[in-house]
Simulated assay, not measured.
Amino acid sequence: MKNRHFILAALLLALAGSCSPKNEEVQDEQVEVNSPSEGLDSIAITKKDALKTDENEINPTMPLPPPVLRLLSERYPGFKQPTLSAGVRAMADAHEQGPYIVRGDFNGDTRQDYALQLQQDRNVIVLAILDAGNGNWDVHELQKDILFNDRGELKSLYYLYLTEIGEEIMDPATNEVFEAPHDAVSVGIEKNTTTYVYQSGSFEAYSPR
């Protein structure tokens, strides 16, 4: 009887031993566990790739539609956002929009237009860009000036802000006051401001009231 029990136990142990490696082998093939460092590397690569697809290679600091940025790159090669002098930043803080870019409906067609200042070489250029529809954009150059040399660093003395439809504007030639027929672009330098109003296909310069 003891011999039978001993033989039965030996058979059970042999069967368990022969099945166990196969089960472990199947589990190893089905589940692949990376080391902690490999897992972190894969996460880092995913994040870098995601950021790379969202980068704007033309000018990542200017929040403008890609077609507008491409147009600016063609017309003003090497353009970038200018550095503002400290005094300009203080004056620009009084306005909701600006000092680099303003958005509004400048020609009354209900589409969103843009105005901005950019740096090209040693110049600061103020532009209005109108959405003409069907993927077309009209570029109007409002001002161009040489950047201020602040101890070897080129800086802009200009700031932009939005003059909204209905605000009072003065015609310096006649001293007459009228209401802005639609949004307008105001460009300030120190205590002087010029407001550009779109009329009859072009921008005319006026003074804010």
Rank of each mutant, 00 (worst) to 15 (best):
N3R: 15
V102L: 08
Y100R: 04
V185Q: 05
L15A: 14
R75N: 11
T163G: 05
S42I: 13
F178T: 08
I146G: 00
Y100W: 12
A14I: 11
L8E: 02
L64C: 06
V124W: 01
T193D: 02
V177L: 04
G108M: 07
N192T: 12
L64N: 02
K48C: 01
T195M: 02
Q199Y: 01
P67N: 02
M170N: 06
S156K: 05
F106S: 04
E164I: 09
R70S: 11
P65K: 07
L154E: 01
P172M: 03
Q119G: 01
T61H: 10
I45Y: 06
S20Y: 15
S37V: 03
R209Y: 14
I125Y: 07
G188V: 07
D93S: 10
L116I: 12
I189T: 00
M62K: 01
L71Y: 05
P99Y: 03
Q143T: 01
Q120I: 12
D171N: 15
M62T: 12
E24Q: 08
T193R: 09
G104K: 02
V185F: 02
L116P: 01
T163M: 00
I101A: 02
L72R: 06
L130M: 07
I129Q: 06
E168M: 11
H95F: 15
T46N: 09
S42P: 08
I43Y: 03
F106I: 04
V177P: 00
V33L: 12
P60F: 11
T83I: 13
G188K: 00
K80S: 04
Q112R: 15
E24D: 03
V197R: 02
T174F: 06
Y158F: 12
Q27S: 02
T194D: 06
G87W: 05
S207W: 10
N123F: 15
N149E: 12
G108N: 08
L64I: 05
V102K: 01
D105N: 11
R151H: 09
D28F: 14
P172R: 06
D54M: 12
K191M: 13
G135Q: 01
V88Y: 01
E176A: 05
G108E: 06
P60L: 11
V126T: 14
A86M: 03
I43K: 08
D121A: 15
Y100H: 12
K2S: 06
N149V: 02
P99M: 06
I125S: 00
G188H: 01
A205L: 15
N59L: 08
Q143L: 10
V33T: 14
E25W: 09
Y159H: 12
N136Q: 12
S200D: 01
D171S: 11
A128S: 10
D93I: 09
S207A: 13
P77M: 04
N175P: 00
V33D: 01
I125A: 05
E167M: 10
I189M: 03
P60M: 13
P77Y: 02
S37H: 07
M170Q: 13
M1L: 11
A115Q: 13
R209I: 15
R89I: 07
P67K: 09
Y100G: 00
L127S: 02
T53S: 04
P77C: 02
Y100M: 10
R4W: 13
Q120G: 05
E74N: 07
L40I: 13
Q97I: 07
E29K: 14
Q97E: 09
N175I: 09
A173Q: 02
R75L: 09
N59A: 11
N59F: 05
T53F: 03
M1E: 07
V68D: 05
